[in-house]
Amino acid sequence: MRQANQERALAILSPLAALALWQLASNMGLIDQRYVPSPLSIANAGWDLATSGQLVFHIGASLRRLAIGFVLGAVPGILAGIVMGLNRWVRAAVDPLVAALYPIPKLALLPLLMLVFGIGDGSKVVVVAMSVLFLTIINTTAGVVQLDRIYFDVARNYHTPWHKLFLRVILPGALPTIFAGLRISLGVSLVVLVGAEFVASRSGIGYLIWSSWETLMIENMFVGIIVITVLGVLSTFFLQECERLLIPWRRD
């Protein structure tokens, strides 16, 4: 217990020490502040962005696109994955399509998506959804295929109606693998979203970073980088909490 506390204290202290060192190096002129501003000046810029309401505006835009795109990709992905996992004919038919479409870097499709879905939120949401879709299909299919045959025998032996088979056997059985896919999807979605916002947006954290660079407001750029990192950590944490609640039998 004591050792655990010490480890925790160290985990908090070491980043703080790094920040202090960084600040010190900046003050002593060891780091060129034109490229890498000091932590304090970044914090200042962050405060200004926050109080002016810009930060909330950009975070809101990014979160909205991320959330809608994620759900639009994950839900059909899970459903398609379950159907593919259960039926080997569907799997044989759809597998080559997934294999062909999955490796396409989804950002490469952004110009096309903008033609189809416009330059607004639509194209960003769709590009996120597409990155999530294929990963979710692949993982869900694997999760269902890996289900032990004996569960289906038990289900049949007790005359499980099909909706119960889905809700009580297939879905929970595949859930751990589905969540593994969602975790990877989340990381990929953040990358794709920031990329899309760099080039084709007037809002969002990606836009904040890119426009700050264009206007050489390096402090603001760093604020954007930190905010998107925190967003990534928080959304991963959120997903982990969902997993903990939905998959209690894996908990120790």
Partner: peptide, 12 residues
């Protein structure tokens, strides 16, 4: 009703 070999319970 059938009693299966090991792993017949639903882990979830």
């Amino acid at each position: 009703a059938m009693v299966f070999q090991e792993h017949g319970l639903f882990p979830w």
